[in-house]
Design a protein around this nucleic acid. Structure first.
Lengths: 204, 204
DNA sequence: ACCTCTATGTTGACAGTGGTAACATTGCTT
DNA sequence: AAGCAATGTTACCACTGTCAACATAGAGGT
């Protein structure tokens, strides 16, 4: 049993965990350093020993989000190691799924709050890393001769943008299809097929 | 010369104008009803006679943004009335340009603040209307036999998502290319070519 | 011309926020 | 054991969104 002690142990981590809970349950607007500290059983100024300001806390949240995203997408992609085309599709499907299942976190990751990512190197590199998963998929596609020539990073960027757009727009019109949930897989497959056709011919 | 009078005349509009100024100059985070009212030379509660709350003011801002976006894209597209393919490209180029030139407004338009657009019908229809510009372009492309078969709204959605993704990602990594400004036109053309290739073959 | 009603604006309050400074406690290091 | 840096606490500040009670202006009916 944990004693009530003056020093918390790992307050920074605890704050992040609670912040993520509050984020997913209450949304970004309701995120408050004071509420988080309260929940952590700590005074409202304690957080400032671990984060220079609220923005930094949010940036750390985003950082963790990117790591989670990369791990999730990579895992999904690896289930289809045989077929590069299917890998490519899964990349997008997993991405959108993640966005829909972690809407508030996703919004935080992508500049909701106008956080200048370049000011938070950890967050920035985590974002780059998650991008790397897609680049890898593209490269395997090229190696297999299924994707035409082209700078892989640039192709990946295009593909990323397409899927990212789907994710954010889907997130927005919450119920585009007037049914309860969006069929994200169908949504992505439609776009991905189109992109894949384009990719076959390279970027001329 | 305008007298100092008790009733402002058209306070609602004045507030929106000032809000937009503050938004573009100070960013979304700094947007405050009180500051806006102050600037309008009016008490801090006056705004509540015209907007039920801050969110509504922001929604109205977004609404105006969508109208501006639609007008801008349409104007750019119409300069290339001859060539449907070039129209399609211009659509995307104009879209990204708008996003980069009106970054804070663009962020407000797209769920920055988790505003539930469905709760603000005016905003929602304005958004739909701006989407309509792209649908029209696709339809003209199909009519000219340059774009394969497919439900135009669905194709448009795919294209929109691709471009929207480019815009938001570009907005985020502000200086992706380590140069001062992003060459948005080149960025979009790369993607658009790819999409266009895909579109030629329809969505099978 | 007056009177009333409604739209609009004002004042003053409240709870909650992010942030800072001054002080308290803890536990590692020497 | 002493001292020092890390970590928490308390008290405060300016600011925010929002509401209720009050004030004023202007439009319409009489």
């Amino acid at each position: 049993m944990i004693e009530e002690r003056y020093h918390h142990g790992d307050l920074r981590q605890a704050l992040l965990v609670i912040a993520k809970q509050q984020l997913t349950s209450q949304g970004f607007e309701a995120l408050s350093l004071r509420a988080i500290s309260r929940e952590a059983g700590v005074s409202h100024a304690a957080a400032y020993r671990h984060f220079p300001n609220k923005e930094a806390l949010v940036a750390a949240l985003a950082c963790a989000g990117f790591e989670q995203l990369a791990a999730f997408v990579e895992a999904e992609v690896m289930q289809h190691s045989a077929d590069p085309r299917e890998q490519f599709f899964q990349c997008g499907i997993a991405y959108v799924q993640f966005a829909l299942n972690n809407a508030p976190l996703f919004r935080v990751m992508f500049g909701v709050s106008g956080v200048d990512r370049l000011q938070y190197p950890a967050t920035h590199t985590a974002a780059q890393a998650s991008f790397g998963v897609l680049v890898g998929t593209i490269q395997r596609g090229q190696a297999a001769g299924l994707i035409g020539a082209g700078e892989p990073r640039q192709l990946a960027f295009t593909a990323w943008a397409a899927v990212h757009g789907l994710a954010t727009l889907a997130l927005q019109d919450q119920i585009t299809s007037q049914q309860g949930a969006i069929d994200s897989e169908r949504l992505v497959r439609n776009s991905a097929k189109l992109l894949w056709n384009g990719l076959k011919y390279g970027q001329t």
